[in-house]
Each structure stands twice: as structure tokens, then as C-alpha cells.
């Protein structure tokens, strides 16, 4: 009884402030719509032999109904794939893709949703080496290499994917967000569209250096949508709201094609999920040759 009471009071402590700040609702583009063709999602396993040797992970491939097998499809990769591919939680990417592709808000796009790797321990009872932070937070081209040398070639065995960097996007939440930026930053010849939800541009593994690097590096051909919330994390690694503001200011200074939306939420995907359809339409605008007007920061 005491334990139960304690639990409930803890719940209220957490929930009361969160519910007000994170009161974001999904719109119709995040719901399955009648008469909109639905793509298919398949689940796969990958054991890395080259770039993150020994890691195992799940990944999913979304193929839109409109994909015809002849025309190369655009690509969008998501870190923490299981979170984004889930059609019951905050992001529901397959459903959003169905709706946006149907109405022409984005190209026919194959979605690749990849979980972070784990190196299982051989010794009985020993803890596995969780590779998420190493893969996502490290400032290097290693994750880009993983995509370019392992995952994309594998997916290309079954599907025709575009080589046009303008039609290759990548997104993620938290450390997955900074990872998306790192991929485009390291390989803008291969990925030029970035979507970041509550991105960890903080000092987990040096990510706080990016705003300074952006200001003092010749502009790269990257378009980026940044989302964060005023109640995001403030911990030993840094302040997420300040870090995202620093990113936005640096992108503005260097005249990047960027958009920054600051909500009131915490370190979760509620706000990012609610605005996902408009975020994606902004990110993909002009994909069909009709160039969208260059948005300025809000």
C-alpha cells in the first residue's frame, strides 16, 4: 500500500508538468486515411562485419505502394528505427509517408529504419556492449560509412535506390538527431537532407563543437529541419535547448537552408511527431523540380 502510494505520487510529479508542456496532438496526416494506398514494412536483421564489426541489430524497410521497381526511389534513413517505424506511437513514419507520397508532398521514398547495434557478450551472464552512443554521438564518418558500405548496398539488392544526394534524407531523435547531421556533414555528396528531433548537439562525445565548426567551414549543401523544446534536457552533457539554439544560430550565420522549431516539450518525440508531416514537407519541398521558397528561421 505504501509502495503504491509512493508510486502514484511519483507518477504525478513526473506527469503533471510533462502533460502541459507536451500536449501535442497528431493530425490527420499521421492517421491511416481511407483511399490512400498503404506501403509495406518488412523487418530484417543485420550483423556488421566491416564498419561496426560484431554488432547485431534489427532494421525495417518501408516500401510505398507507388514504388514500381523501375524508377529509383528516394531514400530516408532513421536512427532508432524501431521508434520511427512504429505506427502506434509518436512518429508513425510509414503512415505519414503513405499520406504525403499520395498527395505529392514528398517523393516516392523507401524508408530504412535502423536500430543501434549491440555486441552480445560471449561469456554467460556478462553485459552486452551497447553501441548506440558510440555509433550516434561520435563525431566521425563511421556511421555514414556503415550506411554507404553495408546497409544501402544490402537494401539495393532488393530495391532500386536513387544516387541523387538531394533525394537522400536522414533523421533521428536525440543522439540519433546529431547522428543524422554527422552523416550529412561528413558525406554531403551522399545525403543532403536532415531531420533532427531533440537532437543531442551537446558534449556527449564532442557534439557541442558543431555550431563552431559550422560557422568556420565553407557551407555544405545540406538542408536541415531542427526541432527542440524549452523543457528538453539540461544535464552533465549540456543544455539541449541552448545547444539547438546554438545550432540554429550557426546555420543562420552560415546561410544554411534550415528551419528551427522550438516548442515547449521535453526530451521525447511528442512535438516532433505532431509536426512530422509539415517537417517532412518542408524538408522535401521542391523535390519534383518545383523549387520551394527558401524558408527563413522562425
Amino acid at each position: 500500500m505504501t509502495i503504491r502510494l509512493l508510486l502514484i505520487s511519483n507518477l504525478l510529479l513526473f506527469v503533471a508538468p510533462l502533460s502541459a508542456q507536451d500536449n501535442y496532438k497528431l493530425g490527420p496526416d499521421s492517421m491511416v486515411q481511407d483511399k490512400v494506398p498503404q506501403g509495406s514494412v518488412t523487418q530484417h536483421k543485420w550483423t556488421s562485419k566491416k564498419v561496426f564489426p560484431g554488432t547485431v541489430r534489427d532494421y525495417w524497410i518501408y516500401v510505398p505502394k507507388q514504388y514500381n521497381g523501375r524508377t529509383p526511389a528516394a531514400i530516408m534513413v532513421f536512427q532508432d528505427g524501431g521508434t520511427y517505424v512504429n505506427t502506434k506511437r509518436q512518429f508513425r513514419v510509414p503512415t505519414v509517408f503513405d499520406n504525403l507520397i499520395h498527395k505529392g508532398g514528398m517523393p516516392v521514398t523507401i524508408g530504412i529504419f535502423i536500430n543501434p547495434g549491440v555486441i552480445p557478450a560471449t561469456r554467460k551472464g556478462a553485459r552486452p556492449r551497447r553501441n548506440r552512443s558510440f555509433e550516434y554521438d561520435t563525431l566521425s564518418g563511421q556511421y555514414a560509412r556503415f550506411l554507404l558500405e553495408e546497409i544501402l548496398p544490402e537494401v539495393s539488392r532488393s530495391y532500386k535506390l536513387t544516387d541523387d544526394a538531394e533525394l537522400r534524407a536522414i533523421g533521428g531523435i536525440s543522439s540519433g538527431g546529431i547522428c543524422a547531421w554527422s552523416v550529412a556533414w561528413e558525406r554531403p555528396d551522399k545525403f543532403r537532407k536532415v531531420l533532427s528531433h531533440v537532437g543531442s548537439f551537446t558534449n556527449i562525445r564532442g557534439g557541442h563543437h558543431y555550431p563552431a565548426m559550422i560557422r568556420k567551414t565553407e557551407r555544405k549543401p545540406i538542408r536541415i529541419f531542427l526541432q527542440d523544446g524549452t523543457n528538453d534536457l539540461d544535464n552533465l552533457h549540456g543544455s539541449w535547448p541552448l545547444a539547438n539554439r546554438q545550432m540554429a544560430a550557426a546555420l543562420k550565420f552560415t546561410k544554411y537552408d534550415y528551419r528551427f522549431v522550438m516548442g515547449t516539450g521535453g526530451h521525447n518525440g511528442r512535438h516532433g511527431g505532431a509536426i512530422l508531416p509539415e517537417s517532412l514537407q518542408w524538408l522535401w519541398r521542391g523535390w519534383n523540380g518545383k523549387s520551394g521558397s527558401k524558408d527563413k528561421a522562425k
Binding site: 561496426f52 564489426p53 560484431g54 555486441i119 560471449t122 561469456r123 556492449r129 553501441n131 558510440f134
Partner: peptide, 15 residues
């Protein structure tokens, strides 16, 4: 490194 059953080491990483 991962420690294998026979003591060999695998999957080196700058973790």
C-alpha cells in the same frame, strides 16, 4: 574487445 570463451579477443572498437 569482446572476450571469447577461449580467451581470444574480438570486435575491437574505440568505445
Amino acid at each position: 574487445y569482446r572476450v571469447e570463451a577461449d580467451g581470444s579477443l574480438s570486435h575491437r572498437e574505440r568505445y
